[in-house]
Simulated scan of single mutants.
Amino acid sequence: MKTHSLLISFLMLLVLMGACSSGPIVRNATGFAYEVVVTMNKADWDAPAGKAIKAELTSDIPGLPQAEPAFKITYVTPDQFNGLLTYVRNILIVKIDKTQYTKVSLSYENNRWAKGQVVMVLTAPDDEAILEYVKAHPRNIVDFFTKCERNRTIGQLEKEHSVVVANHVKDRFNVILNAPGNMTYFRDTTDFFWASNNANTGRTDIVVYDFPYEDADTFTADYLIAKRDSVMKANMPGTFPGSYMATDTAWVTYTPTMINGKYCGVLRGLWHMKGDMMGGPFVSHARLDEKNNRVVVVEGFVFAPETDKRNFIRRIESALYTLRLPGEFEETAIEKPDVPEEK
């Protein structure tokens, strides 16, 4: 892979701009979201270990209508890794040496060469150890960098977000939610809130609704999909008479997860307009508000038929992580990434 790419050109431009400014230069991390620089010996990169790392970082993102890689990779050899490349926001350094290492080990450091940067170092005695690690911990590396990118977006949203969304969801549902600042178009009803950036390219929407909690069966795929379809049919009509939003049930997944130590049910998949031609990816979070015995659902969806959807859906998904229920208002949604070692 050539290093003289658009990424490198962009980095050079930033350095030149900084050189022309007066006063000390504050070195911030450069590069684009969901891009990573990988550096390791060429022989290892071309071997099965390198191919396994590349396959993981470029694995398909679940829940999109077309295949899109989790990350764009810029590969360089260790002797090429210097200067501009050391300022990139996501860096993976792989070292394979049986004289120094006895097992796979992962570590990371924030702000090593630039502010806002994360550098992961993977060490291993040989190729086989890396292959075994990747097999035993599928998606661990890609999930680590994904969480780092999500934390960056959450940090940005904490500083700058839509006041319209924040005020309405606080008044209507007594929750805190930091949506992107360009979400200024909205509709607020008794038990349903919708907001959108109303963009011609890369339209993203967010909805909030709640309903009484009955029992543990609430947090199942069947229940939440049925609830979603009933709520969307009533509140998200299409352009044509009788059209409405529905879930493509053949392409939806349900994943239980923990957010700040508390349970969250995640639906991810595709939506379409019954009786219309619109559709795209969505992701929703269902959280239990124990204080008020209710389930609060926040969902983001994207309509961008003309372009890739990875960054759009990931940005709106980051906003879902900022949901804070009563009793959580002082908490932060930024979580520490974890990098388990080989056992």
Rank of each mutant, 00 (worst) to 15 (best):
L6N: 13
S9V: 11
G18E: 14
A33V: 01
A33M: 03
A33C: 03
V38W: 11
V38A: 08
D46W: 09
A49N: 05
I53W: 02
A55F: 13
L57Y: 06
I61L: 15
Q66F: 07
P69N: 06
Y75L: 10
T77E: 07
Y101H: 05
S105I: 04
L106P: 04
K115T: 03
M120E: 13
L122E: 02
A124F: 01
P125C: 00
D126F: 13
L131V: 03
L131H: 06
Y133F: 14
K135E: 11
H137W: 06
H137G: 08
P138E: 14
I141Q: 04
G155A: 15
S162F: 00
S162G: 13
N174V: 04
V175G: 08
L177G: 13
P180S: 01
T189E: 14
N200Q: 11
P212I: 07
A216G: 05
D222F: 08
I225S: 00
A226H: 09
R228S: 02
R228C: 00
A234F: 09
M236N: 05
G242V: 09
M245V: 14
W251F: 11
V252D: 00
T253I: 10
Y254Q: 02
Y254I: 00
P256V: 01
G261V: 03
G261N: 03
M278R: 05
R287L: 15
R287H: 07
D289F: 01
K291G: 13
G300M: 02
V302P: 15
E306F: 03
A319E: 12
T322E: 05
P326L: 03
G327N: 02
E328A: 07
E331K: 07
P337F: 01
D338R: 10
E341M: 05
